[in-house]
Write a protein that binds this DNA or RNA. Structure first.
Length: 792
DNA sequence: GGACTCCGTATACC
DNA sequence: ACGGGTATACGGAGTCC
């Protein structure tokens, strides 16, 4: 493999790298007869804009002047981690002598660039990576899952509470071994000692759990402290070290505590599941059992035990609970086998530990590849450019209503293809490695994909699929990196150029489809929904049609069928529903399926959409009548009308923002405050609305879901009836005024009849060109681009 | 007091 | 320690008549 991608050091079978002192790293290698380790010197370093800031620094250090004219022109190295931090403080002091605004921490120092992960530093400077020459299955992985006693009257088990305790520790591994440490015959202290012995003796590379960071590990550590045992499960007999709580940004943000175990890796399936779903968005929640069912590896005959019944099972039916735990372990193992290989194969390329690759964002990964090569070639590096990207993907809608048949086509790797064909790279990237990196990754991916398709062995197939998807993850990060305001090699003009090309290609596709007799319904970035010309009515014909379109596009651009459907309900941009040939309905978009919509609203909308797609207007009316009645008669369950929202801000941030008037009060936060529920960002809260006026102020009339009492229901019926009408309003544009009122009403005088009711289809736009020109004008692009567009 | 606008937040799409 | 822009919905607060 190309050294740009894999680093310059080809050492194989490294399973872990951890600091063994403040001046050395321990490199753990798997040999046929077990793990060996080796101590390697390590020189911590940072980049500096001018050597004057380190002038007269008293401790031993090296300053290397780098090639080229980029901003960070000096590489400063030290013989220990502590001395590097001394140097950082020294630089800060020197900087503050003349600075108008003083820096309080290294992160505020514009003149220094430092990554404070010692393992990443070591891997970058040595060119090593983990796992070279290994397959995912070579890793020795253990799954752990504990069940705990909770003091009577409490919902959550708390390791700090003496009356709570660990009841069961279930263990398993990827070699088929299973073991249960049962609290029935053992004291909790004995259980913990046995656990430590097993981990040491079996010497696992990876420890996996669902929510292991926020529950399992902190729980075990706290109990060990209570019994004054060292939880010494590191390969060097050290205890897990917690490190600063960090925010992980997906579309949801959450706070989590992290731990490191020397010589081993921690994989939290809860966390990698969320990362996975950030792009796929197919999961309703992130519980282990839901994920296992969703992906289809839950055992058919297994039992599930609700958290509030664990105490009872621990006391009365431990065998049932134990089987349940082992089934959970099996699901953790499967979930990891589904999601981790992608991370594993990226770790073969990137200068990070396994767990770090799982945690880091796309941008940090690309940047690490660039920096590793800049360090190797002793070349200066730029600082981030402050200008920002001005353009984004092209979205448009041409019809609303019910349409079909539908072809859902997307451009294969739109942005990466443009970057390669236009040879786009950051203007500060003077070594010229951005293009070769992207080019090589693309070639490697095509190779892996070909192998995936041609090897007969399903095991090998899965391996090559994981490899190609690791490449894909990296390839897709290049564009985002260019527009990221804190990336060292960012280039907003380059990002805009890519997007502009994307607009142009999409426009060509739309025009071609229309010219060839198809009708485009909706477009988003690299995806087109259209109805093909009438004579085309099966998949091979549709594929042929795509090939015909391709002839009108530049050679690098390929259109693929992403899906085909009987019908589409087109509502708004990014909001639609599809009826498959298997009669399944898929609903997309925040205004149709948002998670924070009350459940009755989601189900009502879903029922209406099904009715519309099945041409069954009677069903649509039934939905309205049904929910109207359920609400009015207080027959909805709490979970049907309660709203569940994430609290993204801390209580301090929220209160401060409200006080200073920069944000409004919101029911979710007010409920938590009123009910004295402490929260951290990322926690969820469920609540409902009270009162009898439909036009309430939400934050003054809300109650915690837990406070609702079925004997004294106090949900605001008038408000929820109004909500139902608001949901119904989404369908207004599909009917004439009279029809709409007939369908969405409960008039007992007449029996509803769908006869004569028509679903309306509306053409939104007839001209494609003017929309795009308008967009270009609004960003003041020179007329040349408009002329280019006209000529095509 | 309703209709309207403005704004920040939340969620989702690619 | 944190990829990007685009889009819709909603609730609260202010303004106008």
């Amino acid at each position: 493999m190309n050294q740009l991608l894999s680093g310059s050091n080809q050492e194989e079978n490294i399973v872990a790298v951890y600091p063994s002192s403040d001046r050395s790293m321990r490199v753990y290698t798997r040999k046929t007869n077990g793990i060996t380790s080796q101590e390697v010197e390590f020189y911590p370093f940072f980049f500096l804009s001018s050597s004057k800031f380190l002038k007269d620094f008293p401790k031993k250090h090296w300053i290397k002047e780098l090639n080229g004219n980029n901003y960070y022109r000096y590489l400063c190295a030290f013989s220990s981690w502590l001395e590097m931090w001394d140097a950082i403080r020294y630089v800060m002091m020197r900087y503050n002598e003349n600075a108008s605004t003083k820096a309080d921490s290294y992160s505020e120092l514009p003149i220094i660039h430092v990554r404070t992960d010692p393992v990443a530093q070591f891997l970058k400077q040595s060119g090593r990576t983990l796992f070279k020459g290994m397959k995912f299955d070579d890793l020795h992985r253990m799954q752990i899952n504990i069940k705990t006693h909770t003091k009577h009257g409490f919902n959550l088990s708390n390791p700090h509470r003496a009356e709570d305790r660990i009841g069961i520790i279930a263990l398993s591994d990827n070699r088929g071994w299973e073991f249960v440490i049962n609290g029935k015959g053992l004291s909790e202290k004995e259980m913990l000692i046995e656990l430590i012995q097993i981990i040491k003796q079996k010497d696992y590379d990876v420890i996996e759990g669902h929510n292991i960071y926020n529950f399992t590990l902190p729980y075990l550590l706290t109990r060990c402290e209570m019994f004054e045992i060292d939880f010494a499960i590191g390969r060097d007999d050290s205890v897990p070290h917690p490190f600063d709580k960090r925010l992980s940004y997906t579309e949801r943000s959450l706070d989590y505590s992290s731990f490191e175990i020397s010589g081993r890796h921690i994989i939290d399936t809860f966390q990698i599941l969320q990362t996975y779903d950030a792009s796929k968005r197919s999961l309703e929640n992130y519980s282990l059992n839901h994920a296992a069912q969703h992906f289809g590896f839950a055992k058919k005959d297994r039992a599930y035990i609700q958290p509030d019944r664990i105490n009872r099972y621990l006391d009365d039916e431990p065998e049932t609970l134990i089987q349940c735990c082992l089934d959970d372990n099996h699901e953790i193992c499967q979930l990891s086998e589904f999601l981790s290989p992608n991370i594993f194969y990226m770790t073969q390329m990137l200068p990070f530990n396994f767990g770090t690759v799982a945690r880091l964002g796309a941008s940090a990964k690309i940047e690490s590849l660039l920096l590793r090569e800049y360090i190797r070639q002793k070349h200066s590096i730029p600082k981030p450019d402050i200008s920002s990207q001005t353009l984004g993907g092209y979205t448009d809608i041409f019809y609303t209503g019910i349409l079909g048949p539908i072809v859902d086509a997307d451009v294969e790797s739109l942005y990466p293809s443009i970057m390669l064909s236009e040879k786009i790279s950051p203007y500060t990237e003077t070594l010229g490695i951005f293009q070769p990196l992207l080019d090589e990754l693309t070639k490697m991916r095509i190779n892996a994909k070909r192998k995936m398709e041609t090897v007969p062995d399903p095991h090998e197939k899965r391996k090559h699929d994981a490899i190609q998807s690791a490449f894909k993850t990296l390839i897709n990060s290049f564009y985002g990196y260019l527009g990221y305001n804190r990336a060292l090699f960012n280039d907003s003009k380059a990002a805009d150029q890519i997007v502009r090309n994307g607009h142009k290609i999409l426009k060509q596709i739309i025009t071609t489809i229309t010219d060839l007799g198809g009708e485009v319904i909706e477009v988003d970035t690299d995806r087109v929904f259209f109805t093909p010309p009438q004579n085309i009515n099966n998949e091979p014909e549709e594929k042929k049609f795509l090939k015909k379109i391709k002839k009108h596009l530049q050679p690098a651009i390929t259109l693929l069928i992403n899906g085909r459907y009987q019908k589409m309900l087109s509502y708004k941009k990014k909001n639609y529903a599809l009826l498959g040939y298997d009669s399944k309905v898929k609903i997309k978009g925040a205004s149709l399926i948002s998670r924070n919509m009350e459940r009755f609203g989601r189900e009502f909308i879903q029922g209406c959409i099904e009715g519309l797609l099945q041409d069954d207007i009677g069903k649509v009316h039934e939905q309205y009548a049904k929910y109207n009645k359920l609400i009015f008669n207080r027959q909805l369950m709490l979970s049907d009308f309660a709203r569940t929202e994430y609290l993204r801000e801390s209580s301090d941030e929220y209160n401060k923002a409200v006080e200073t008037g920069t944000r409004n009060r919101a029911a979710s936060y007010e409920v938590a405050i009123k009910s004295n529920i402490p929260w951290k960002p990322g926690d969820k809260v469920s609540y409902y609305f009270t009162g009898d006026d439909p036009n309430i102020k939400g934050f003054e009339n809300c109650k915690l879901a837990d406070e609702w009492d079925s004997n004294f229901p106090d949900e605001n019926i008038q408000y929820y009836l109004k909500r139902l009408d608001e949901f119904a309003k989404k369908f207004e544009e599909f009917f004439s005024e009279n029809d709409f009122h007939a369908i969405f009403s409960v008039d007992d005088l007449f029996v509803f009849s769908p006869k004569g009711i028509k679903i309306l289809t509306t053409r939104i736009k007839s001209e494609i060109k003017e929309v795009i020109e308008e967009k270009y004008e609004s960003i003041h692009v020179e007329p040349k681009i408009l002329l280019d567009d006209e000529s095509e």
